[in-house]
Design a protein around this nucleic acid. Sequence first.
DNA 1: CTGTTAGCGCGTTCAC
DNA 2: GTGAACGCGCTAACAG
Lengths: 335, 335
Amino acid sequence: MTITIKDIARIANVSTATVSRVLNEAGGYNEETKKKIMNVAHELGYRRNENARSLVQNSSNIIGVIMPNVATIFYGDIVNGIENIAHEKGYSIIISHAGVNGERFVQSVNLMGERKVDGLVIVTVELDRNQLDLVKSLRIPFILLSTDTPEKDAPFIKVNDFDAAYAATQYLIENGHERIGLAGANPTDRVAGITRIEGYKKALQDNGLPFEKKLVKYGDFSFNSGKEAMESFLQEKTELSAVFGVSDDVALGIISVAYNHGINVPADLSVIGYDNTRVAEMSIPPLTSIGQPFFEMGSEGCKIVIEATQNKKEIPSRIIPFHLVERKSVKKINE
Amino acid sequence: MTITIKDIARIANVSTATVSRVLNEAGGYNEETKKKIMNVAHELGYRRNENARSLVQNSSNIIGVIMPNVATIFYGDIVNGIENIAHEKGYSIIISHAGVNGERFVQSVNLMGERKVDGLVIVTVELDRNQLDLVKSLRIPFILLSTDTPEKDAPFIKVNDFDAAYAATQYLIENGHERIGLAGANPTDRVAGITRIEGYKKALQDNGLPFEKKLVKYGDFSFNSGKEAMESFLQEKTELSAVFGVSDDVALGIISVAYNHGINVPADLSVIGYDNTRVAEMSIPPLTSIGQPFFEMGSEGCKIVIEATQNKKEIPSRIIPFHLVERKSVKKINE
DNA sequence: CTGTTAGCGCGTTCAC
DNA sequence: GTGAACGCGCTAACAG
């Protein structure tokens, strides 16, 4: 049914070896026979079988991508970056969702093992010891994107959340704010929760500002978290002139509730977000936010993994720079 | 290096055939030998080679997904839906981006052909005659999501854009609006542009409302389109009490400019969006919008394709219902 | 219940 | 420059 190099060989009156050589541009054949073979292949609508190829070459030219199933906003950008490079390098990507809490992670890894992917990009999911060992058992290059491991014993690319949170807070302080709230961070999240809380604290401390418990409202990085945080602030009549939302969603939640209470942003309250997702520029007012280079993370991560499959070198971890995108949600008090 | 069934067979003192039978639970073997084999397999950390399997079974258990590379907001939901079902049915998904204007489409299809995917899900990309023929040349089940072909000669799942636009407009009319603008639609877009414009016109007409050229502003479904449209309305001093933005982004663009001009939504101007993306609930005010069931589109599409690979039945096209999600961006004048 | 054989489609020796 | 033969890891057919 399907056309194989056998068919081509038969019709072109050559051996399959020659067909293979021509198709792979391996050199060592007559231009005449090449033309003949190419013509036949074209006429027959031949398409090579990558599965068979993978089998004999012991390499699939596939990069596996594992991520939680949440359709996060930056999901798209990271995958875009990955796919982009993969395509450029002649690789395909196969995607598997590990589940919001990583409950399908083992299955995902096994899947990648069975498909014999050449490399692995793991997005966002936090790995414990066992899971990391499982990944390592694949004996293929891999990298973590936007996350890391407690002992930093696996290569990763991410921004420094502590520094970024510090910068966000510092920015508010520099603009004259002293009563600064923190909202939406999950204090049990080692990667994006604790770090950002600590960055916030440190910035306060370095500027001689007191840290007050009632200024921070925990949450899960969601829009709702932001709303709840703001409502708490209001209810507790907490005095504050600015809030650092640990995600754009949180920041929008804050702005939303503020609006409903007639509190104008940024006139009455300043808000800064985190992620610089596409909603940041669409919000009212446009949201000042800490930007993470998601697309670049994806492309860099994919690129380095592919390179590692070829040169067998160890993959270095990398801290990638964030950038603060100034928009209109923060009032400059001291100007 | 890698463990194969040969290794297992050798150590367990059986033939590879038996190992294969056990591993595939094909039945017809002693419980004793099964245990022995399973143990050995486990100890060796055996992982089957799906590529070899695909080769001999002439079926890869992979579903291909082709989409434009735009990281659209609904991208995530559709893919989630697809992956979800695929996983449930034991399939893997391999993703390829066709490029915003489909410039990489041919490569994507060829890729899928070479990987011998069992079925294909094509998201959003519009196909011309040649492209459709190429897809068909794969001779595998496929489906179009959120798009169709001019001659409806390929199976698709989408909402009826005409009806949806009609419903949006009708909703505004029912709430007492008579001067209704349309913004952001691309009049050369056969699938989502022309249809929505026509739906809007028809609703006007059916309600005895005049259609006025200056009430419609074309665009490309983007936030910027919305902003530009609203600015035009303002500049031309077009009198209107409501605007139908053909995407949530467009709607937010309108609201944004309105806000900057001190125009209150919905008090002074009502706005309805389209897509019901996650930004809809986060906007100020929360945006009333036409909802498309993206996740369901993905899961339904994937499901039906997988089924078709098994029962060889033809895939029927399907119009999937939209729903109007009422929030706070439309003023009910007649109440 | 189990082993032997063949072959999936392809790349790669090693001869000629 | 080209072909015959082998093997990648696995399943399927047939024998026993």
